[in-house]
């Protein structure tokens, strides 16, 4: 891919990002942040490529750590967002239920 093609994609993505994200209401800003946070975990692909094609000890170590970091970012990010959004979408239900689910804290 040429640099100019990549810059074109980048600029268009900036506009798409601003357009889509400015419509998210304040109430959902924490899940939004947590979800976009999970999305930047996509850098894990870079780690996969590094390790997948590496043939040098240092790269093995750096790349494996990068994969682990990326996986924490992706898995943790999406799961925690799912937990949060479950609270927003759920209908009001008997209080006992919510209390029972709440852990010590």
């Amino acid at each position: 891919m040429s640099l100019m093609t990549e810059i074109t994609i980048f600029v268009l993505a900036v506009f798409v990002g601003f357009e889509v994200i400015s419509k998210v209401p304040t109430t959902l800003h924490t899940p939004l942040m947590s979800q976009t946070n999970a999305i930047h975990g996509i850098v894990m692909l870079g780690g996969l490529i590094v390790v997948g094609f590496a043939n040098d000890g240092v790269e093995y170590v750096i790349g494996t750590i990068a994969i682990a970091f990326g996986a924490i970012n992706i898995v943790g990010g999406f799961m925690v967002t799912d937990r949060m959004l479950g609270m927003f979408s759920r209908k009001p239900r008997p209080k006992a239920d919510a209390e029972a689910k709440k852990g010590a804290g």
């Binding site: 990549e6 980048f10 900036v14 601003f18 939004l32 999305i39 692909l45």
Partner: peptide, 22 residues
């Protein structure tokens, strides 16, 4: 950009926009 990977470019930029707006 460095890895010539469109998924990274678009996803990273979306997050950049979102973080900037917030």
């Amino acid at each position: 950009f460095a890895l010539d990977n469109v998924a990274l470019i678009v996803a990273g930029t979306l997050v950049g926009s979102s973080g900037t707006i917030l």
